[in-house]
Amino acid sequence: MLEFKALTKQFKNTVAVKPATFTIPDGQMVGIIGRSGAGKSTLLRMINRLNEPSGGQMLFQGRDITALKGRDLREWRNECAMVFQQFNLVGRLNVLTNVMSGRLFHHNFFSSMAGVFSEKERAFAIRALDRLGMAHVALQQTDTLSGGQMQRVAIARALVQEPRIMLADEPIASLDPLNAKVVMDALRAINQQDGLTVICNLHTLDTARQYCDRIIGMQEGVIVFDGTPKELTDKAAREIYGAEAEDAFSEAMTSTALRPGAQRAQPEVRVVN
């Protein structure tokens, strides 16, 4: 259980996230929606402390996450993996090494500096890649992949962390609809098969409705909606998106008419370079 107690983030002149209090039970798939600049990313990045909260508290299974430092903080980051909009992989390393870097927390100084990974870790990484249909590019240099492939590699890296929570910061915003579907299906599968909590920032309403158990709507740093997809009426959505409402709706219609699991678009198109 992840509890937020008046968690706040303030930048110099603006309050990005106003005191937020809510609870996410284990195993839930949560979608955070809102227009750009609403504070979604800041909220998500506060969970693994890539952004430092300026006030309030965050508890995971009763442990105070906001107070963690040094090795404890890194252990927490290892426990809650993150997937980014721009994938944040190391382009000049091969895919396998990128995935294995998810194990870095468990390494000592010398083995990580020397880049030595065990056979077990390699096998683990290959299994994670295979699960996402990416094992065939394991030895390819990462920056030769397409965006959709990179995001799947990034999810594989997150998986080998054996996390308890998966954070996804706009995971499909840079992808075409087909790849967006593959990535969202993968996140949903991780949530349902592995029982991981998935917290996902999404730009488009439709995707959030299709994939998430619960939707949190943010507007100018304030949580203005918190409920099930059914409860999110068009009227409520319009309030979240304000002036951008028409854009959000039309975007939802054009770019992500996705149906989870309907016909699993497994990566049949394999790019072999």
């Binding site: 927490w76 980014f84 998810g102 870095l104 500096m113 962390q161």
Partner: peptide
């Protein structure tokens, strides 16, 4: 700095 964020997020220290 994106890859650095990536390694930070897996729990890597400054050296990593």
């Amino acid at each position: 700095m994106r890859p650095v964020d990536g390694i930070k997020a897996v729990g890597g220290n400054w050296f990593e």
